[in-house]
């Protein structure tokens, strides 16, 4: 499964979204579940899924799905 699809799955599971609901384009606070508490749950889930430790600045700046994807890509590229 690609990073993109794994990240979509993480978002859906963490934010309790329906299986086919759109995730790309989703922004922080678009949904009640993606509040500050949900954001930290999302960070924990992303870190666990990809075995990463994000920087605090990255967590604060992660305002949409695409930001999260870019951040994960950057970390995984650094590992390789």
């Amino acid at each position: 499964m690609s990073i993109h699809h794994r990240l979509i799955r993480v978002f859906r599971e963490t934010l309790d979204l329906a299986p086919e609901s759109p995730v790309t384009g989703l922004r922080y606070r678009d949904l009640p579940a993606w509040n500050s508490v949900g954001h930290m749950q999302l960070v924990a889930a992303i870190e666990a899924e990809f075995d990463l430790m994000l920087e605090t600045d990255e967590i604060i700046a992660m305002a949409c799905f695409e930001d999260a994807e870019r951040t994960v890509d950057r970390h995984l590229a650094a590992i390789v």
């Binding site: 749950q41 924990a44 430790m53």
Partner: peptide, 10 residues
């Protein structure tokens, strides 16, 4: 506390 919580949450 911030950083430890992130590892403990996992």
């Amino acid at each position: 506390v911030q950083l430890a919580a992130r590892l403990m949450r996992r």
